[in-house]
Amino acid sequence: MGSTDPPADGPSLERLSGVFRVYEARRDGDRLVYYGEPRVPRERLLEAAWPLFREHGYEVQLTTETGEYVLVAEPADNSIDGIPWTNVVLFVLTVISTLYAGAAWYHIDAVADPLAVLRAWPFAAAVLGVLLTHELGHYVMTRYHGVDATLPYFIPMPSLIGTMGAVIRMKGQMPDREALFDIGVAGPLAGLVATVVVTAIGLSLRPEEVPMRMVNSPNTIQVEFGYPPLLELIAWIVGEPTSYGPGKAVNPVVIGGWVGMFITFLNLIPVGQLDGGHIVRAMLGEQQERVAALVPVALFGLAAYVFYVENVSNASVLWVFWGLLATYVAYVGPANPIDEEGLDPARKAVGVLTFVLGVLCFTPVPIEIIA
């Protein structure tokens, strides 16, 4: 049995005594370890202990070791130590993959002239700019609320847009529902601002000329994007069309704006630890689970509608995939804040507005591939 004297840089036993009876306290490397017995339920224990450890610069979690309850505190360090090579390498790979994806939209033969893909930089800049702005919105709020989080990880993917998006990983405890809301809502709102700008710029650029050999070829695969109401609204405001006759297509930068809207809608699905799940968890508390239980049902229903009514099989597969993913995410559950005090009316209003904007980014058939 170790000492009952706490480490010098940890909270005193007296301050913990009301919620956790400590019978051993020691330092384990850079961690502080307190063995003991909870005197209150887990939620109340963390609500009381978390700010005490944060005063000393630690993140604390309650766990068990060999049947014993243990408060394990690790240094809360939000600083970036050295060059984040994983983030840098993934970003560079995503730049390359989006350039190659953009080459198809600019009708560039990347096999014959690999360096010609650099001409697709407006498309790559549009897609990456929207994604980066979205993730930086989250990251800035994690820094503001003192939540430990990584820099964005971009995900390269050979596809029509060259990426599967980007994510940040939150490693620290969520202090309260205000922090959960701010972090969750900042990404979609920041990303939407970038999306609107990118879309307006793309619509103002000249349309892309489609070579007639491709228009007339029986082997050409036609890709049709379903434009959500927000994109149509922006086009109406700037006075530009969203479709052209044979031989012309919207400038590929517009596709970057479409990507931003599609990703915004997907992230706002109110389940688990998606942005929408964070927002609803912060607004409704534990009642969020009732909403999350309905989400997979709605997505499977949407898949059936698209398949049987719209008669678009590839879009139906897309919604089935997201229905399965939502089922898993709902099972994993949302991020749970330590302090469950409710939100102020202003934040609730922002939350409702965010979901309204998310609906404007929705279209039942986002993309249709016609062979």
Rank of each mutant, 00 (worst) to 15 (best):
G256A: 03
P345Y: 06
F91N: 03
G57D: 07
E341F: 06
W85N: 07
R21V: 12
R347P: 08
A282L: 06
M261R: 09
E37W: 02
L115E: 05
A371W: 08
T354Q: 05
G137H: 02
V352H: 13
M261D: 05
Q173H: 10
G358A: 06
A304E: 13
E224C: 02
I338G: 00
L93H: 12
M261W: 06
I269L: 15
V306I: 13
L360V: 08
L46S: 04
A304H: 13
V40Q: 01
E68D: 11
I183H: 03
D275G: 04
A179I: 00
Y23L: 00
N78H: 10
E55C: 03
V329R: 09
Q287T: 15
R31W: 11
R213T: 01
D5M: 07
I370N: 13
F362R: 02
G257H: 00
M1C: 05
V111S: 07
R281S: 15
F355L: 04
E65D: 11
V130D: 13
T199L: 03
T63V: 10
V312H: 01
V95F: 15
V259D: 03
P334W: 10
I155D: 12
E47D: 03
R21L: 09
P152S: 04
V167A: 11
A101E: 13
G191N: 08
V332P: 14
A116Q: 02
Y23S: 09
L189S: 11
R26G: 00
P188L: 01
D77E: 12
V250K: 03
E14R: 15
A179E: 05
Y144N: 11
D275L: 04
A326Q: 07
P337W: 05
H56A: 12
L52A: 09
E74I: 00
H278R: 08
D30E: 14
V306A: 08
I155N: 13
T354V: 12
G358N: 07
A166G: 03
D9H: 07
S313I: 10
V306K: 06
Y34Q: 13
I338Y: 06
T220Y: 02
T64P: 02
M174F: 12
V95M: 14
H138D: 09
Q61D: 10
W85H: 12
Y34V: 01
Q273Y: 05
E240Q: 11
E74K: 09
S204Y: 01
W322G: 02
S316M: 07
P38S: 10
F91S: 14
A73N: 02
V88A: 13
G285T: 03
A73H: 04
I269C: 08
H107N: 05
A235D: 00
Y328S: 14
L324A: 15
T66S: 08
A330R: 10
V198I: 10
R31N: 08
P51W: 11
F321E: 13
T94P: 08
Y69H: 15
E43F: 12
V329C: 01
L128F: 09
G245K: 00
A73K: 00
A149C: 06
P211K: 00
Y139V: 09
I369W: 06
